[in-house]
Nucleic acid binder design. Structure first.
Length: 230
DNA sequence: AAACTCCTCAACCGCCTACCG
DNA sequence: CCGGTAGGCGGTTGAGGAGTT
């Protein structure tokens, strides 16, 4: 079956945008706002797919874009947010005014990944690579002894969210930032929603569902898809 | 100076989800 | 409740610029 294309591809331009196209898009959005992307190209006189217009506007033409190099503070904030949110680029971008999800995603893949590897930190898990190696070795030993029940299905790391979450800290950029893998027991003993702490609006990502924890510790964490309250 | 390799980032693709009738 | 549609997102690609041989 397949899905229907988002627009009539036979009559749309692709590839890099020309100055004229940019100007058409800007002047149309200035005059009418950025409402319905599907009908916008036709109304603006552009031979482009609506999605393409949206992307061009959001990632390149929006007047509030910052552009230019990322600061060290932005670097650290991205790393910290990525540790908490994973590859949720749009959410991360929401905390960096003037930056787009695409820009952050590109910057992560080209710069920050390398930076973290140089620090000896795994970019995906934000844990020290040495510790991961050690873990792999011991897991391999467990496997060879026939116990595979404690592993993740994909053979990857056993990511325990309880252990991989830490409170956001305001570390200085120079400080080598340890992975946000502190245990809950080292955290302040108070109910705290990390998303709210970071300034996310509840409509953005946080539903502030309370997960009861033993010993009177209750940690509020927005449930991810597939995550269950025990 | 030319050829080649590497790197960056704008743009595309396809999937997911919210919304609406 | 269901199906269709549009918007949004993350992963990936590829053009072109920069650097190297």
């Amino acid at each position: 079956m397949g899905r229907s294309p988002c627009c009539e591809k036979a009559h749309t331009n692709k590839g890099a945008w020309t100055k004229e196209e940019d100007e058409k898009l800007i002047s149309y959005i200035k005059a009418h706002g950025d409402g319905c992307w599907r009908s916008l190209p036709k109304a603006a006189g552009l031979l482009r797919c609506g999605k393409s217009c949206r992307l061009r506007w959001i990632n390149y033409l929006r007047p509030d874009l910052k552009r230019g190099n990322f600061t060290a503070q932005e670097d650290e904030l991205i790393i910290e947010l990525h540790g908490l949110l994973g590859n949720k680029w749009s959410l991360i971008a929401g905390r960096l005014p003037g930056r787009t999800d695409n820009e952050i995603k590109n910057y992560w893949n080209t710069h920050i990944k390398r930076k973290l590897l140089a620090r000896g930190v795994d970019p995906q898990t934000h844990r020290p690579i040495a510790a991961l190696r050690q873990e792999e070795r011991s897991t391999a030993q467990e496997d060879s002894s026939g116990d595979s029940s404690s592993r993740d299905g994909d053979g990857g790391l056993d990511l325990n969210l309880d252990l991989s979450i830490s409170l956001p800290r305001h570390s200085s950029p120079e400080q080598s930032s340890p992975p946000p893998a502190a245990t809950a027991s080292t955290s302040t003993m108070q109910a705290l929603c990390l998303c709210c702490h970071l300034g996310f609006q509840s409509s953005e990502t946080c539903s502030c569902r309370r997960i009861p924890r033993p010993l009177g510790f209750s940690f509020i964490w927005p449930l991810e898809e597939g995550q269950r309250i025990a």
